[in-house]
Deep mutational scan, measured.
Amino acid sequence: SEIVVAMYDFQATEAHDLRLERGQEYIILEKNDLHWWRARDKYGSEGYIPSNYVTGKK
């Protein structure tokens, strides 16, 4: 599975969105859409994140 790191904070506005915290790692579950990826955080929460807010883990 692909691990990404959040470059920016993202506040979830929709129920299906996942909040991003800058510097935290997330697991990508689905990339069915170019701009919104389904991800899981370290607490096990899942939701959609803006793909341009994250970068591949170095």
Results as ranks from 00 to 15, higher is better:
residue 27 I to F: 10
residue 29 L to I: 12
residue 46 E to R: 02
residue 8 Y to R: 13
residue 46 E to S: 05
residue 24 Q to Y: 07
residue 42 K to Q: 12
residue 41 D to G: 02
residue 54 V to F: 04
residue 50 P to R: 05
residue 26 Y to M: 00
residue 23 G to D: 06
residue 42 K to P: 07
residue 48 Y to K: 07
residue 29 L to P: 00
residue 52 N to V: 10
residue 34 L to K: 15
residue 11 Q to F: 14
residue 24 Q to T: 04
residue 29 L to H: 00
residue 32 N to G: 11
residue 46 E to H: 04
residue 23 G to I: 04
residue 55 T to W: 07
residue 17 D to C: 15
residue 49 I to F: 06
residue 27 I to K: 06
residue 10 F to N: 02
residue 46 E to V: 10
residue 3 I to L: 10
residue 28 I to T: 01
residue 17 D to I: 15
residue 36 W to S: 07
residue 22 R to C: 10
residue 24 Q to S: 10
residue 48 Y to C: 13
residue 6 A to Y: 04
residue 36 W to E: 03
residue 17 D to Y: 15
residue 15 A to G: 10
residue 22 R to I: 10
residue 47 G to L: 02
residue 29 L to F: 04
residue 25 E to K: 07
residue 27 I to R: 06
residue 44 G to M: 06
residue 15 A to D: 12
residue 38 R to C: 12
residue 25 E to T: 10
residue 12 A to M: 06
residue 37 W to Q: 00
residue 12 A to E: 07
residue 9 D to F: 05
residue 39 A to F: 04
residue 55 T to G: 06
residue 55 T to H: 09
residue 11 Q to I: 14
residue 10 F to L: 08
residue 37 W to I: 03
residue 9 D to A: 06
residue 22 R to W: 08
residue 32 N to Q: 11
residue 15 A to S: 12
residue 31 K to Q: 07
residue 9 D to K: 05
residue 41 D to E: 00
residue 48 Y to G: 02
residue 33 D to H: 10
residue 31 K to P: 02
residue 44 G to S: 03
residue 41 D to I: 02
residue 36 W to M: 07
residue 40 R to H: 04
residue 58 K to W: 14
residue 47 G to Q: 02
residue 39 A to R: 00
residue 49 I to L: 05
residue 45 S to E: 13
residue 58 K to T: 14
residue 6 A to E: 00
residue 42 K to E: 07
residue 57 K to S: 10
residue 11 Q to E: 14
residue 38 R to D: 01
residue 51 S to N: 07
residue 9 D to R: 03
residue 35 H to R: 10
residue 37 W to R: 00
residue 57 K to D: 11
residue 30 E to H: 08
residue 57 K to I: 14
residue 36 W to C: 10
residue 30 E to K: 05
residue 9 D to Y: 05
residue 28 I to W: 01
residue 56 G to Y: 14
residue 24 Q to H: 10
residue 1 S to F: 15
residue 48 Y to P: 01
residue 58 K to E: 14
residue 34 L to Y: 10
residue 47 G to R: 02
residue 16 H to T: 14
residue 6 A to F: 03
residue 11 Q to S: 11
residue 58 K to R: 11
residue 2 E to F: 13
residue 40 R to Q: 09
residue 48 Y to H: 06
residue 4 V to T: 04
